[in-house]
Design a binder for these strands. Structure first.
Lengths: 351, 351
DNA sequence: CTGAAAGCGCTTACAG
DNA sequence: CTGAAAGCGCTTACAG
């Protein structure tokens, strides 16, 4: 057990400075009612004694917690390596946004059902919780959904649960951007790989944006459903296999997420179909894997910094009893090599 | 400001249970001196009142913090997306290991020099700090090095600073595994892409393991230095360009990290050199990008779970005043498609 | 501008 | 097995 040997307290500083303990407290908290000269002197002495305000004592007295909990929902097996890099980037953005607002972040990775925990708020370790992660772990989301119904303050990204307040990317706008980009590149027979009946609302929204943009161009929308039960990457592969087997003409793919797009590209490559020459591909997420793929993946990338800030601010709003408008993180088209720029219409496959 | 309306305290529970407040405290902390029946009853009543022990009050009285700080050193611009996925996986492993030890994790991403902070321990928000991240941000590492010299308890992964206690992968063993695998595949003219004079000690250690394994096989070691000032990926590309320009024979590359390997493979592809047919490639890190690359990258992967546990345990040892043996996370060879299995010697390039 | 005092909600010797 | 009491180290009215 580590003993707290000779930690200085505010009383030690007070003694050394010849003032009262309450003046030390006020001085170090920057209370302007303390004379500037006194403040300076006390700060100096505190430094000399290596004194720092005890955060726990400060909290218990002031009631100010200054901390938010961030929960990352993992696969049930809790393999953190299986955790999507998109969520890691989002975690970083949340921590940065919290820090910018003067808040600490208590982070936990939760997967196994018997270890789910949202006691942060009721034990006063945090003012509320931001939940992100794998939508596949339904039990975990149900747990946090119930927690929210019970009155805990929770905001999430990509909720499959309707019980949770959420922040999402501007999925429809992003999908429209993707389609408009493909149209500008001369692609016409653009299919969407996604999932219509998916717990992740973003998939439906992205299909919606795709369908709208196609309709606006007077072109038919066509959805290839991802096969349940396998990874996104594998789903992307199989969607292409299915498309080719059906012998239906297509010259571009808008995939509802980057992993689907990368799987689709892997399969196109195996079939000897040139990207972006014969088929253009656009994903959605802005994953690092898209930079490394061959060809590098054109994608729609949400503004991560904005997403982090929106999540933190939305939590604040909820704590203040407000319910602002549905918060959407802006998205941007990132053109890389899997789609052609402006050009004439392309051959496509199985035309 | 959020008021704490009607939070129950231990006094409320005591009143409802007809016992003293101290008995409530003992009962809920599982003190066996409280009769089991009484404990049960009190727990029941606490549940009914939605009472939970206030963590801050508990800490201030008991002195037990139960939290470690985890600092992720980012690039100075604090772009969390530029943060290496390896470190994200390590972060997850640390949080999981801490949780398994009953510790919370206070996570922060730190990059900009004027925002560096390690006041966790002195303000009693944490018992100590684990530091991981980009070795490029020297100022940040120097800051934490100074912090450690000043008596803070810090353990890091991949320290470029000698002031910090560290945990590392078993780099030499990993490099030997890589070389032995390549030798078994029939490769003989194996070059190492790395950096001899690098702040990251792991690079030197990996070269060392490579050189030993080559010597053991009676083969000459050959190091291609990464060019300073560009990304690892770009360094990998340029190393291949340089090798080809020199017209020196090689039939395999052991890259000191996956990003170097992926860059090297990208360049080999552009030059029309077949991997693994003409040249075998093995990386080091086990990044997700290696699964997606074409061909998928054979690599040496540290045991992330073990790494997280070692970091947490090493911090505990330091707090207890012990200095255990240099802690190494075990590594494993992950054979994918960028290297051949057993086979005859291969042609290589520029032979 | 500063001090004396109360008290945040607990844990933990001490006594019985 | 339980209670009365002290006290962890602060913040914050209140009074001057």
């Amino acid at each position: 057990m580590v003993k707290q040997r000779d930690r200085a307290t505010s009383y030690d500083v007070a003694l050394a400075a010849g003032v009262s303990q309450s003046t030390v407290s006020r001085a170090l908290s920057g209370d302007p009612s303390v004379a500037a000269a006194t403040r300076e002197r006390i700060a100096e002495i505190a430094r000399g004694l290596n004194y720092h305000v005890d955060a726990a004592a400060s909290r218990v007295r002031s009631g100010r917690i200054g901390t938010i909990a961030v929960v990352l929902i993992c696969p049930v097996q809790e393999d953190v390596r299986a955790f999507n890099p998109f969520h890691y980037a989002l975690l970083g953005a949340i921590c940065a946004a919290a820090s910018a607002r003067g808040l600490e972040t208590l982070v936990s990775f939760q997967g196994a059902q018997d270890r789910l925990d949202n006691s942060y708020e009721c034990t006063r370790r945090a003012i509320g919780t931001i939940v992100i992660g794998t939508s596949e772990n339904r039990q975990a989301w149900d747990f946090f959904g119930a927690s929210a119904r019970a009155g805990e303050h929770i905001v999430c990204w990509g909720a499959p649960s309707d019980d949770l307040a959420w922040v999402r990317a501007d999925n429809e706008a992003g999908a429209r951007l993707a389609v408009e980009h493909l149209l500008a590149g001369g692609y016409r027979r653009i299919v969407c790989i996604g999932e219509a009946d998916c717990p992740q609302r973003q998939f439906a929204e992205r299909y919606q944006g795709y369908a709208e943009a196609m309709a606006a161009a007077g072109l038919p929308a066509r959805m290839v459903e991802a096969e349940p039960g396998c990874s996104r990457h594998e789903q992307g592969r199989r969607a292409v296999t299915q498309l080719l087997a059906q012998g239906e003409a297509f010259d571009a793919i808008f995939a509802a997420c980057d992993d689907l797009a990368l799987g689709a590209m892997a399969q196109l490559r195996e079939r000897g179909i040139a990207v972006p020459g014969q088929v253009g591909v656009v994903g959605f997420d802005g994953l690092r894997g898209g930079v490394l793929s061959v060809p590098a993946l054109t994608t729609i990338e949400p503004d991560f910094a904005a997403a982090g800030t929106l999540l933190v601010d939305q939590l604040h709003a909820q704590l203040a009893g407000e319910t602002g408008p549905a918060p959407r993180a802006p998205v941007a088209l990132v053109v890389r090599d899997s789609s052609r720029g402006r050009g004439p219409s392309v051959a496509g496959v199985a035309a």
